[in-house]
Structure formats: structure tokens, C-alpha cells
């Protein structure tokens, strides 16, 4: 049975030794990650007096439905406490949904957590899977055993990650001595040694400097392009999404608020970027071309708001030509403000 199913598959996928995997994948091709009315309810006990406890039900995830196809790279965003991490934990099988249907690669995560674990990779940005006291390479050797990676495959994947994530000089360094950016790259490599079909990334660039962020993003982009790894990315950094994801899902209060391209999100939220300019001296507000406008003046420094969908280049050129410009910077809208605007829109409509 595996053979017949495998032949038609291997013809166009050209992935050797995919036998049983491929046959399972046939069903999952359309929707690799599938959520249908998924709920997660927590009972929270609150102290209301001496010995008195009040039980409160919290719906962390409330009727969530979406699908992600194989090879997609999707941004999953929302404010703190929106239910992002709860979703990720249900997708790994750590948490069991209170209701609804959830499948990853055709597997019910909480029922077959261990079987699923071999096919997924997880990076929690604020946590580490690496062995704190031991050299980085020791954690990788452990992954080799844990995921039963064939020796040749392990060496090949390790070499590739070491090369692309620039880990060569770090392999013999104890993890506790790594910088945050180095550790994050180390963690990403650890999540990929077993060739996961899907990678969940929970805040992979949190706390990283610009250079480290660029390295991580570049690596993820290549991974998705070359290996077709499906990526679900949770972040607070809109630039992560802008540079990596063609599709973004916004969740708040456990519900899906938006699902579509990032540009559409900006439209839906009418989000604005801010151009901060430092002039040589104190001047009256800059007369900027529509729709940009000055929102704040403080001595020689002025703040201009303009639509996130518009390019900053024209605006910058115009100001540079007409005003004594010393310095400038562009601030991206943060997710909270985009979502806040989205709410305002809906309330107004």
C-alpha cells in the first residue's frame, strides 16, 4: 500500500525514502495545519478572601479556525495574552484543546505528541532547549539520539546549520557563555537537525540586535525557499513579518481578527509609520506633502506620520532638499497600535 501511494508521490516530489511519510502527506497537502473551531478554556482560581477562592473560566482560545498549507510561511501575531502561545502549545501537543478539531500533518497533536514531535521543530525565543552548562555540540549530539537521526543525515544537517548560522566557533563553548543572539541561532539549529516539516517559532528575534535579527531572518527565508519547510511565526516585530511572511494572521482574545496579506492588515488598521527628523535648528512644523503630516515638534526634532503602505523615500528626499536635515530615522508601527486601529475601524463601521 505504501508502495503504490509512494510512486505517484515520489514522481513529483522527488524526495527519496519518503515511503510511508509521503502517503500520510497526501491527505495533508491541502491543509498541513488545520484548526476547526478550536477552543482552550482554563480554570483560573482567584483568591477573594482568607481561604476563599473564586473560580473563573478564561477562554484563551475561542473558536479558532484556520488552515496552513505545506510550504507556507505565516506570521501569527497579536497582543500579549491574545492566545498565540496557547495555540502553539496546542499545535505541539503540550496542551489539549477543550473543544474543536486540530490536526498537524494529519496527526492529532495531544493524542500522539511523541509521533508528531519527530515531524515538527519548535523554537521558543525566551526559552532554550540547549544544555546550559555544556558545550553547544553536546546538545546537538543529544538531538541526534533523541530524534534518531541517521548519522549521515545528522552530519549533513549539522554542517549546513553551522555554516549558515555561523556556529563554527561556538560549538565548543558552554551555552551559558553564549550571547542572546548566538544562543538563539543555536536553538534554531537544534530545532532543525531532524528535518522537521513544520517549524513553530515563538518570538525568534526578541531581544536581538539588528545584525542578529538579519541573520536569523535570512536563514529562515532560505530554509523556507530551499527546503519548503512550513513556518508559523509568532512575533511582536512587524519587520519579521514584512520580510518573511506573505500571509499574516492576527489573533486577539482567542479569536482570529484578520487573515490575509500584510499590506491588507495595514489598510485594515490604517497603520502609520513615523519619520523622526533632526533639523539644524528649531523651525516651524515642516510643510510635508499629503498625506504625511507633522504630529509633534520638540526643539529641532520633528515627528511626521505617514501611511505604512507608502514609501519613505520621496518624503525624505523632499525634506532633505528643503530643510537643513541633520539626522533621521523611521519607526515602524507596532502590532499593538495596528490592532488598536483595527478595532477602532470596526467599532466605527
Amino acid at each position: 500500500m505504501t508502495d503504490t501511494a509512494g510512486t505517484s508521490e515520489t514522481a513529483d516530489r522527488a524526495e527519496p525514502g519518503a515511503g510511508a511519510e509521503a502517503s500520510a502527506a497526501v491527505d495533508a497537502v491541502a491543509a498541513f495545519i488545520e484548526l476547526d473551531g478550536v477552543e482552550k478554556v482554563f480554570d483560573v482560581r482567584k483568591k477573594t478572601g482568607f481561604l476563599k477562592r473564586e473560580r473563573r473560566r478564561v477562554r484563551a482560545v475561542d473558536g479558532l479556525s484556520f488552515t496552513v498549507s505545506r510550504g507556507e510561511m505565516v506570521g501569527y501575531i497579536g497582543p500579549n495574552g491574545a492566545g498565540k502561545s496557547t495555540t502553539i502549545k496546542m499545535l505541539t501537543g503540550i496542551l489539549t484543546p477543550s473543544g474543536g478539531r486540530l490536526r498537524v500533518a494529519g496527526i492529532d497533536p495531544s493524542r500522539e505528541r511523541t509521533r508528531l514531535a519527530h515531524r515538527i521543530g519548535v523554537v521558543f525565543g525566551q526559552r532554550t532547549t540547549l544544555w546550559w552548562d555544556l558545550p553547544l555540540i553536546d546538545s546537538y549530539r543529544l538531538m541526534h539520539r533523541m530524534y534518531r537521526i541517521p548519522d549521515a543525515r545528522y552530519r549533513e544537517n549539522l554542517d549546513r546549520c553551522v555554516e549558515l548560522l555561523q556556529l563554527r566557533d561556538l560549538l565548543d563553548v558552554p551555552v551559558r557563555q553564549l550571547s542572546l543572539g548566538q544562543r538563539m541561532r543555536g536553538d534554531i539549529a537544534a530545532a532543525l537537525l531532524h528535518d522537521p516539516e513544520v517549524l513553530y517559532l515563538d518570538e525568534p528575534t526578541i531581544g536581538l540586535d539588528v545584525v542578529s535579527k538579519a541573520k536569523v531572518r535570512g536563514f529562515l527565508r532560505d530554509l523556507n525557499a530551499e527546503r519548503g519547510t512550513t513556518v508559523l511565526l509568532t512575533t511582536h516585530d512587524l519587520q519579521d513579518i514584512e520580510q518573511l511572511c506573505s500571509r499574516v494572521m492576527v489573533i486577539d482574545h482567542g479569536r482570529l481578527m484578520y487573515d490575509g496579506p500584510l499590506a491588507g492588515l495595514h489598510e485594515a488598521g490604517e497603520s502609520e509609520r513615523t519619520l523622526v527628523v533632526d533639523l539644524e535648528r528649531e523651525l516651524p512644523p515642516i510643510e510635508a506633502p499629503e498625506p504625511a503630516r507633522v504630529v509633534r515638534v520638540e526643539g529641532p526634532r520633528q515627528w511626521l506620520a505617514f501611511p505604512a503602505s507608502a514609501s519613505a523615500a520621496g518624503l525624505v528626499a523632499r525634506i532633505a532638499a528643503e530643510y537643513p536635515l541633520v539626522d533621521l530615522s523611521v519607526r515602524e508601527p507596532d502590532i499593538e497600535s495596528v490592532i488598536a486601529k483595527m478595532y477602532a475601524e470596526r467599532a466605527g463601521a
Binding site: 502549545k89 509521533r115 514531535a117 515538527i120 521558543f124 532547549t129 533523541m146
Partner: peptide, 13 residues
């Protein structure tokens, strides 16, 4: 306490 146990739980071990 910190929730890092989540990392231990999703592993195939």
C-alpha cells in the same frame, strides 16, 4: 515555575 518545562514536554522523550 518559569514555564521552561514546556520545552521538555514537546520533545519526543
Amino acid at each position: 515555575r518559569t514555564g521552561d518545562v514546556a520545552v521538555d514536554l514537546y520533545r519526543p522523550a
